[in-house]
Design a protein around this nucleic acid. Sequence first.
DNA 1: GCGTAAATGAGATTCATTCTTATTTTTAAA
DNA 2: TTTAAAAATAAGAATGAATCTCATTTACGC
Lengths: 146, 146
Amino acid sequence: MSAAENQQLKQVLREHELKATTQRIALLKLLDATHEHFDAEEIYLELLKKQKNVSRATVYRSLEALAEQDLVTRLDFGDGRMRFERSKGEDEHHDHLICEECGKVIEFFNLEMEAQQLSVCEENDFTPSTHTMHIFGTCSDCKQTP
Amino acid sequence: MSAAENQQLKQVLREHELKATTQRIALLKLLDATHEHFDAEEIYLELLKKQKNVSRATVYRSLEALAEQDLVTRLDFGDGRMRFERSKGEDEHHDHLICEECGKVIEFFNLEMEAQQLSVCEENDFTPSTHTMHIFGTCSDCKQTP
DNA sequence: GCGTAAATGAGATTCATTCTTATTTTTAAA
DNA sequence: TTTAAAAATAAGAATGAATCTCATTTACGC
């Protein structure tokens, strides 16, 4: 089953004109297996656990290549390092509520908000490619324990 | 007139329990005088031009202290360094369209979008403090010259 | 299997930001 | 105005994420 998954990911990489290296496959497999928002260092350490031949530079370079092909998505929570997730379809796009106390990230999607964004772009003759909407504050858990 | 401005800024700083140092006053004066989104290094260089006694560390520390008191606002355009602007009133809040070609930043405000944000927070029992809404893409100028 | 272009590993490098320590300022009170 | 204590500053060292270098290895079309 892991073999089939490897085969499938190899396919995906080739379709995006990326060489199917063991490192890239392992990286995609890792992100496929979690819903967490890993940063590059965490990804590097996770990969090290599973196979010894990975370097930090490769993690960064692979993430860049994969992001360029929209196979992974960069997330900037404003704390100085980028997080990454496996890209979701257009219909699975989401924004984030970020708790400043505990760091928890709540994903949300609001159709009206997306519509407003498009209308703002139109008003300004601006062609959008991506957007980030982050609301910082305090989550319900942290409100209760002051 | 600069003396009066100094006096006024001194007042502002004291009201926020910050010592009114010449560096902080100069920093506020600089941000008051421009609509640009300077980064820390640019602020440092601008201040150096006007008076020789400033250090990078002080610029960073002052910006942190001023941001904490909401006298300046941090802007994260996702390019690896923070920008700063003089804080505007609640009613002057704005979000940003950021051109990926030329780096131009267009400010906008959309009341419905702000309302949607509040409703999302309510749905999630989340108390918002600040938010960032950045739309990346191509501005009208850059569309014309491909 | 072979050759070549592309990817990788290891570590050096860059760049924004933070920290350290000795010195200087601010400010409140004498 | 002088003075003392607390806070802020200057200068440069240190940190940490991300990028770059270059010698070595790997992927993959032939």
